[in-house]
Design a protein around this nucleic acid. Structure first.
Length: 124
RNA sequence: UCAGACGGCCGGACGGCCGCUGGUUCGCGAGCGAUCGCGGGCUGGAGGAAAGUCCGGGCUCCACGGGACUACGGUGCCGGCCAAUGGCCGGCGGGGGCGACCCCAGGGAAAGUGCCACAGAGAACAGACCGCCGCGGCAUGCCGCGGCAAGGGUGAAACGGUGGGGUAAGAGCCCACCGCGCUUCCGGCAACGGCGGCGGCACGGCAAACCCCACCGGGAGCAAGGCCGAAUAGGGGCGGACGGCGAGGCGCGGCAACGCGUUGUCGCAGGGGCGGUCCCGCCCUUCCGCCCGGGUUGGCCGCGCGAAGCCCGCAGCGAUGCGGGUUCCAGAGGAAUGGCCGUCCAUGCCCGGCAACGGGCAUGACAGAACCCGGCUUACAGGCCGUCUGACGCU
RNA sequence: UGGGGGAUAGUUUAACGGUAAAACUCCCGACUCUGACUCGGGCAUUCUUGGUUCGAAUCCAGGUCCCCCAG
C-alpha cells in the first residue's frame, strides 16, 4: 500500500476480514442494525474497535447457482470500491443479495451500499 | 427452390484499466530451521451439459471365514464392443411413414392364481337375441319340435380370414390361397428366415396384475481415509485385590511320577456383540491406583499424468481396437472468473433512402467444477458443415 | 452424501384399472321487507411429458416442485 501511486486514502481503517462462520452471520442478523435497499440488504453489528469483517450471503430463493454467484461477486466488487478510505473500524457487515442484485446498474448498487451504511449508523 | 430425415460441430471474437484465485520466480523482513509475512515479475484459471444423481467403474475404509436358505433389488430377442453397465454398435422380429428414416421393457399365458367394466344371447370346460332351413299344426302369419351358426346386432376383443364347392339351410364338411400349430431339409455363430410336408383350428387378451424362468448384485462413501494435534469417556502398560471348571506358564520341593504355591496366558460354561435368519467361526466381558496415550474444532495430505486430450495411419459395415507423433490442460473451502470501457459479430426495433446502404437504441441461450472417470437423462438463444429423401421448375 | 414419501375443486381429504366423491369456502338463483339459516345449481389440464392397456387419478419410465429420515 505504501509504494502505490494511488491517491492516499484520507483515513485508514482496519483491513477487512471475512465472516465465515454461520454463528457470526446469525449473530449479525439477530443483534445488528438492518437497512434494506433495492440492490441489497445490509446488517451491521458493532464489535470491538480495530476489527472490520465483511460477509456476503444470498439465499436460494434468489435463483440458481449462477445467479447467486453473480449477486455475491457484484456485492464484493461494490464493497471493494466503496469501503476503503472510509476509515471503518469495529464492525461486522453482512451484505445480503436480493433479486435485483444481479441486474441493477453498478453505480446504483454502490449508491445502495452507501445509503445503507448511513442508515445503520456506520457512516455519519 | 420449397418441405423434410439423419449425423457431426461451435456455444460470441479481440483489446485496455482495476480486482480475485492456483503455480512459479525475484526482492525485503522475521526465524537456528522447516517456514511465514509484505511487495513485484511471468503464467494457469469452468461446461457441453460443469446440472439431475438414473446406471457402471476407479479410489478408500469395513466385512474379506465360508456356506446355505429365504428374502430383496435390478436386468430381460440375438451377436458383438467396452474396465463395466440398465450404455453403445450391428442384426432379427413387430409397428409407423410416399420416402430418407423413426419407434418398441421385445423371455414365459398348453406351472398356477387373478382381471376383462358398460353394452351384448354369449367374454373363455362357449353360446343362440334377431335370424336361416326342414317337418307338423292352423285363424298365412304365428306356434311347437328339430337342424344350423353363414348374415344382422353389441363390444377394445365373439373360438380363424377370403373365394369356390357343397347343402334343406349350413359348418374346415371338402378344396385353393393367407394366417396358426407341428415338422424334414436348407441358410445363419445365433435371434430368425426360406422351400416342402402334415394337422384341420385345438391355443382370446393382460405378466409396465401376482407370478415362473434365466442372469447379475457384500456394505459404505472424499464429511471415504490418513497424518499433526489440549480436557473427558473409551484404549494400552505396570502394580494390587477378587475368582465356577479345566489346560498351560512360572516358582519351590523331589531322581521321577507328582505335590504345593502362584498366575486373567488359553479353553469351556455364563453374559453381551458381529448380516435379514441359521450353522459354524470371530470378538468383548470384575474393581482400584499410577503412567502412557488420546475424538470433535483447526491445519496438512488425499487432490489431479488420466480407461486423458488433439493429429495421423492401419483393421473393422460399425461400436471399437492397435500403432505412431504431440500436448500438460482449474483445484476453491461462506467456496476463485467480477467491475468499467472500446472495436467487431449476431438478432430485434426505430429513422433516412426506390435500392445498395448509413445512423441510433436494446438484447447475448441453458447454465458454475467441489475426489476422479465412462454412460444415460434433462435444459439450451443463435449459427456452421456433411449425407440423404420427397415435391415442383429448368437443362 | 445416502434413503423414504407426496402432488386430485380456492382449502382439507376420498376414489378394486371402468362416469373423479365429500365437507367447508366462493359464485348464481330461490325463500325474506333486509340479513342469517335453509333449499336448488355451478366451480377439476387428477403437477407435467411419454409409454403399457380396449380403457390410466390408479400401472411403468423421464422431468418439475415440496416434505421427512440418517450422517
Amino acid at each position: 500500500m505504501s509504494g502505490s501511486a494511488d491517491p492516499a486514502p484520507p483515513q485508514t481503517g482496519a483491513p477487512a476480514g471475512r465472516i465465515k462462520k454461520r454463528r457470526d452471520f446469525l449473530r449479525a442478523a439477530q443483534r445488528g442494525k438492518r437497512a434494506a435497499r433495492p440492490g441489497l440488504v445490509l446488517q451491521a453489528l458493532a464489535t470491538e474497535p480495530g476489527s472490520l469483517r465483511l460477509g456476503f450471503t444470498v439465499t436460494k430463493k434468489v435463483g440458481n447457482a449462477v445467479v447467486r454467484n453473480r449477486a455475491r461477486r457484484r456485492m464484493k466488487e461494490a464493497a471493494r470500491l466503496a469501503l476503503p478510505g472510509l476509515g471503518l473500524s469495529g464492525w461486522d457487515l453482512v451484505l445480503i443479495g436480493r433479486d435485483a442484485t444481479g441486474k441493477r446498474p453498478f453505480g446504483q448498487l454502490i449508491g445502495d451500499l452507501r445509503g445503507a451504511l448511513k442508515q445503520t449508523g456506520v457512516l455519519p
